[in-house]
Design a protein around this nucleic acid. Structure first.
Lengths: 222, 222
DNA sequence: AAGTATTTTACGGTTTCCCGTAAGGAAATG
DNA sequence: CATTTCCTTACGGGAAACCGTAAAATACTT
């Protein structure tokens, strides 16, 4: 079994349970951080000392408080971790249950397992840890069931997200156009952007921009 | 100390920690439900058997799954509980940290304490339980600090919420107007609704309706 | 290199939003 | 009962969204 595991989880009420699972699995070294920044520091330090972690279990969203931080989410932590220790095994333990967000964790960040916080997540987490150790791939907790080959939602790309983000910030078409021009994002004509928004509206069955942003917010896209 | 406590929390990873706190406080009877409906049933049953609960500790948001449910949130559970056992002490333990939503829990649902899930919430929860037992009022975990007398946000009333909800569903002004007419909500002229939206835009510093809804979503108003 | 397809951009007409002003009506005051 | 005040509604003009069409630019094929 794993020898050295790092847990990144801000909520103490949850980290207790996660650590309990790791103790049950008799993992000798269990470290826990409440901030992503601390997590990256620990990973780097462990590498320097030639005692790297075997496994990172991370949440996705972290509360903000008084402290100044560089890494604000689990995604950013994992991305940074990939920069210094690409082979690190990674399990995400989060409440998120939107398939395209989870898919991107596997595709873009190369995580080994995703466990959704739910009514039976402790046993799911345990199974995921064991499976990851056995080098199983794309482990998903059983309350989630979506098809990795379903392309439908993955086609919403960063370009669409950029538009939605700016719309949600009160930008009008012209503003978005000039914003894209100055960031050299293409296409950036008002007409093209308009068309893309229209596609999104059709896709999400939205009546108008207001409706679209409400839906995008619900889906956690912005 | 309390003799009989009910915990309503769907996430097993969290309920473990909550129950641990209660055990540390040596509470003889601790029950736990993962669904709001089960919570209400238990409260009713305990009342019938003349062994009512002294305290309810509830989360606010519950995941939906295959099961059909009547009560979908902690608010609804507490409201129902108030219907059958108004004197029941109530502590809410949730991730929510928007002041006006928390205020309404105290004002409208008469909860005794609110503990925000955070980096040190376990000790906060323990303090809240002890404080509630000593009949302290309006207990707030210390990571939250807002003024109960600050009227600013509480003035957004259900009328505004109705407008925001319909906007978020893609209604245009005319639709909202006729919707209000058929529900006999006043004022219902397009002009009045327009003016009210304008006030909201000024209040939330929103550039337009799209921006407004994005902000409303962020604040959890809709 | 020419032709075809696709993408990007431009344009115009209609609807809705946006915002100021003002008329109409109800409640409050004296 | 008249006057003031506040609230609701109506109206109008300009801005932005909405929606279809078409031209221009780019990429793709043969």
């Amino acid at each position: 079994m794993f020898k050295k595991v790092l847990v990144a989880e801000d909520l103490d009420s949850i980290s207790i349970a996660v650590i309990q699972v790791l103790e049950d699995l008799q993992i000798p070294t269990i470290h826990h951080v409440k901030y992503c920044d601390d997590g990256l520091l620990k990973i780097k330090k462990a590498l320097l000392e030639n005692e790297p972690y075997d496994l990172l279990i991370s949440d996705l969203s972290f509360k903000t408080d008084h402290r100044d931080i560089h890494l604000s989410s689990g995604e950013e932590l994992i991305e940074s971790a990939n920069g210094v220790q690409p082979k690190l095994k990674k399990i995400v333990f989060s409440i998120e249950d939107k398939s395209y967000r989870i898919k991107s964790l596997f595709y873009d960040l190369g995580i080994n397992a995703y466990v959704s916080k739910g009514r039976n997540s402790i046993s799911e987490l345990r199974k995921a840890i064991e499976g990851t150790f056995r080098n199983e791939e794309r482990i998903l907790s059983s309350d989630l069931s979506f098809n990795f080959n379903d392309k439908s939602l993955i086609e919403i790309e960063s370009y669409d997200i950029s538009i939605l983000k700016l719309l949600a910030q009160g930008y009008i078409l012209e503003n978005i156009s000039s914003e894209f021009k100055s960031s050299s994002i293409t296409p950036n004509g008002t007409s093209s952007i308009e068309k893309r928004i229209n596609k999104l509206k059709i896709y999400f069955k939205a009546n108008n921009n207001v409706h679209l942003i409400a839906i995008a917010k619900d889906f956690g896209l912005v």
